[in-house]
Write a protein that binds this DNA or RNA. Sequence first.
DNA 1: CTTAGATCGAACCGGTCGGTTCGATCAGGA
DNA 2: TCCTGATCGAACCGACCGGTTCGATCTAAG
Lengths: 206, 206
Amino acid sequence: MPVPRGSSLDPDRTRAAVLRTAEGILYSRGLDGVGIAELCAEAGISKETLYRHFGSKDGLVRAVLEARSDRVTRWLARAAADAGDEPAAQLAAVFDALGGWFNEPGFRGCAIVNAATQHHTTPASTIATRHLGRHLELLTTIAARAGAADPAALGRQLLLLLEGAIVVADHHDGPGAADDARDAALALLDHATRRRDGHSGGGRRG
Amino acid sequence: MPVPRGSSLDPDRTRAAVLRTAEGILYSRGLDGVGIAELCAEAGISKETLYRHFGSKDGLVRAVLEARSDRVTRWLARAAADAGDEPAAQLAAVFDALGGWFNEPGFRGCAIVNAATQHHTTPASTIATRHLGRHLELLTTIAARAGAADPAALGRQLLLLLEGAIVVADHHDGPGAADDARDAALALLDHATRRRDGHSGGGRRG
DNA sequence: CTTAGATCGAACCGGTCGGTTCGATCAGGA
DNA sequence: TCCTGATCGAACCGACCGGTTCGATCTAAG
């Protein structure tokens, strides 16, 4: 059953509603697994309306992916910020948040990376590159605040864990991948911040 | 230009040739990016021949993915074996081999994971799960031979790095991801095998 | 030579796709 | 009230899809 048939007649509201509906369907069925006719039906709009708002299916996909990238980026940053000032705790919180996502019923991997995998020519690739760059920025910031010897390098390593966890959770392990990734991340953080004596660094240091 | 028009009339040879050709096209263009008509034309066979050999496009895709999984698995195992008996060297060799792959012109991520991402209902998902399981087995074996405290856990962590490196190389970094993954893998190996004194373990131990 | 089977090439099928257009409808501002 | 513009619903387009069939052709085995 589509939208309650309200005919809001407010372009902004219509656009937002379409984006919300299309995101769910495109994520669960894939970019090529659903046609714009069905998209319009589910969103409760006509094809002409969709055409005027987004220009093409590709335009709709791009708008959906950009909105999603923004939201996911804010969500991860929030998870880190809510974990307090301790870098190790922030890192753990990021991967715990991932674990919560993996446990959600409709989890099917990263929508942006999936889209870029399906249409490697379209702007999806550009959005995906920027999306990973945003994750890298968050992780590098945490690495720097933790006092890592090479924050950029540690950030890149942590990004591998983050993206690897999504793939493994989707195609192999399920939610357990988040726990493995968190353990590995904390180990790498410890390795990159350890003093050169036998002391195990990264622990509480006020 | 298709096959040299030899008409081998040998079913096994024909099947192998079709698999080889289809693998390249399906990998570079995506499962939905090419029709069976073009596949047949490039392979130099008729649609009826393809239909008799593989039953359907899905059957062809499955055969392609299974053959590729076998080949990739053997390739990685060989890379490890050729690196000698030292677990750390074997691990480094695995990620160095990955780096070589990332540098190849047509690299577009893992064909099996990509396929499962595109068609998450088809047998592609099953093949992908088994594919990652094979990688996990190799990495866990190396972890165990290195004397890790928990080889299964370390194996799972290394799998995250392997899969993460493929995604990041495809969508963000390029070949550098392999170097980051190797460094992280060696750090995790060190972390999991270190003695509880200050000595940095994992080194040569006969 | 004859025959059986693999293959070709082309036509054909029903279906779906993304995109376009058009007349009717409806709400809000002048 | 009347107009503007957002929207609807439906029809339509050309293209391509995966799959099926058929007669002709070619090769290798008997």
